[in-house]
Amino acid sequence: MGLLEVTNVHKSFGDTQVLKGINLKVDKGQVVSVLGPSGSGKTTLLRCINFLETADEGYLNFDGNSYHLPKASKKNIADIRKETGFVFQNYNLFANKTVLKNVTLGLTSARKIPAKEAEKKAYDTLKKVGMLEHMDKYPSQLSGGQQQRVAIARALATDPKILYFDEPTSALDPQLTAEVLDVMRDLAKDGMTMIVVTHEMSFAREVSSHIVFMADGVIVEEGTPTEFFENPKNSITRDFLRLTSVE
């Protein structure tokens, strides 16, 4: 069953066409990894799907409802965002809030959930990402990996139907990357639906149910991890994999 489907997404910044007609379908429980060289439009695609950028053209079908991306109303956008979670490359934790408040704010302010109930929910998700003992600290007192795990807990706390990850480990060293990827692996095991923009090839290969490879604003190739990594059909894909794979 398709939970999310985008069709014909176009986006330009000035004269630069960043997305040139993207189609992407994500079923419930799927982990879709979006790979590709820098500047290929992966992040822009993710941002357009969650309306952080307004696409010039394209449709979004989310959870049975269809929306014209450039024309979606504020109300529609707010409703969609309440059903989705977004994890940023540079975490974007609320700098003036403790770890606990970072997780509860979306519940207490946006959803009017009582503080006690929100905190209970926050304890659960912080425990899941292994950050419960740091709940009274401020973001600036945490390592990058810890901040990113809190960001994941914050996104999880709102019970999203789908989680978007925008290069969640790009700012982290290998050790911190591993701790974040471990959390994401657990989420995948729990059946969380995810779109992951990433450069972590081995993670994509191991965890994804579907791989999408983008270059220059179009999807060049897609398929299961096995198809994609073992038998890439496109020459751009082959070049990219040759450069990035360590194996």
């Binding site: 965002r81 974007n92 609320f94 302010s109 959803r111």
Partner: peptide, 29 residues
């Protein structure tokens, strides 16, 4: 940083909620 506003939107908060809970406290400091 603009990311603070985006993060607020992404957890479902409205513009004024983000201004009140996130932007103004940081700006005031």
């Amino acid at each position: 940083p603009a990311g603070q506003m985006e993060a607020g939107y992404c957890v479902g908060m409205g513009y004024m909620q983000i201004i009140w809970h996130v932007i103004l406290p940081q700006a005031f400091r």
